[in-house]
Design a protein around this nucleic acid. Structure first.
Lengths: 173, 173
DNA sequence: TCATAATGAGTGATTACTTACTTTTATTTT
DNA sequence: AAAATAAAAGTAAGTAATCACTCATTATGA
């Protein structure tokens, strides 16, 4: 990984997250990264390839964060760890999350389901806790997690904590 | 409102919701609506004007839906009505909601906060129910509402019902 | 007859991407 | 170690296609 290649990835992620994938031109990215536009295509073949590279890199970072939750043996600890997830996202990972959430709403382009590892953990936890429908319960938590993450990423985190507390209370944590 | 003007609004809303605002060209809209491209600019001045017209029209429809919830006198009825909101959205209003949610993630373009009337209703309801922090409680419900709406709009509504039940139980409905 | 609706062929700017070329870094041969 | 060669990194100036938007002209309905 050369320095300029990394500059491209950084600039593209920032711009994609702020202005959206479609309305960020490769010319803008090149200018922001301080490289020639051609270099983008040399390294990533096309614009979509650049997006894919960004998403893969981001997913690797997040999977690492997930690992911490999976180390707990007590299912309630797993739950508590997962529910507080949105608050533990490091600031430097925010652009990647914003990009992921914004891409959800466009049907055609790159779709990255980063919730899968969490879903597995949740189903496992609810099974151990003897819930009658662990899958449904897991989906419900994922839904709330999405809501909290959205609030945190769009800078309205003040009230997310109270929801977190309420949900934790529901599960007796 | 001429017929062709309405065709433009319909086609644009559909395309904006499916493919995103930025990646939908005025040429595509004109073709889908079966009109000349110039007519779009005659009626809406520019692309952003078209978006604004769509959003205003959608908001008017939704405000009408909101009115139903505000007719209840019992605050618990108001709460119940609001919480089941995402499930009551008519299918033909889905594109407008999808567009609204997708626009949230782009900082620059038109932002229309359609949650304001609901927020007012919620704060009022929680005040009447003597909650110690009605504003925070309202924000929490809005957050969950967002999560449920997202799930419904992105075609994963199966498990949303269980969340709805859990939340309703929390508020003793 | 007069305003509005509607068209179709433009406009320059911007789009993603390519090409021909130079520069830098790494590898191999003397 | 020096020279030669190859491979990779990087650039500047293109490309055709598409972008949002304009304008002159025609159709239509009150």
């Amino acid at each position: 990984m050369t320095e300029k290649k990394e500059q491209i990835l950084d600039a593209a992620l920032k711009l994609f997250a702020e202005q959206g994938y479609a309305s960020t031109s490769t010319a803008k990215i090149a200018k922001a990264a301080g490289v020639s536009e051609g270099l983008i295509f040399r390294h990533f073949e096309n614009k979509e390839g650049l997006l894919r590279a960004i998403m893969n890199h981001g997913k690797a970072q997040i999977d690492q964060l997930y690992k911490q939750a999976s180390t707990f043996s007590n299912p309630k600890d797993v739950l508590a760890s997962i529910l507080s997830f949105p608050f533990l996202i490091p600031k430097d990972q925010h652009p990647y999350w914003k990009l992921s959430y914004s891409l959800k709403w466009q049907s055609d382009i790159y779709l990255n389901d980063m919730s899968e590892p969490i879903r597995t953990l949740l189903i496992d936890a609810f099974t151990k806790l003897a819930y009658q429908n662990p899958e449904a319960e897991a989906e419900a938590v994922l839904l709330i997690l999405d809501g909290i993450a959205t609030a945190v990423l769009l800078k309205k985190p003040e009230h997310s904590v109270s929801i977190l507390k309420a949900i934790m209370q529901k599960y007796g944590i």
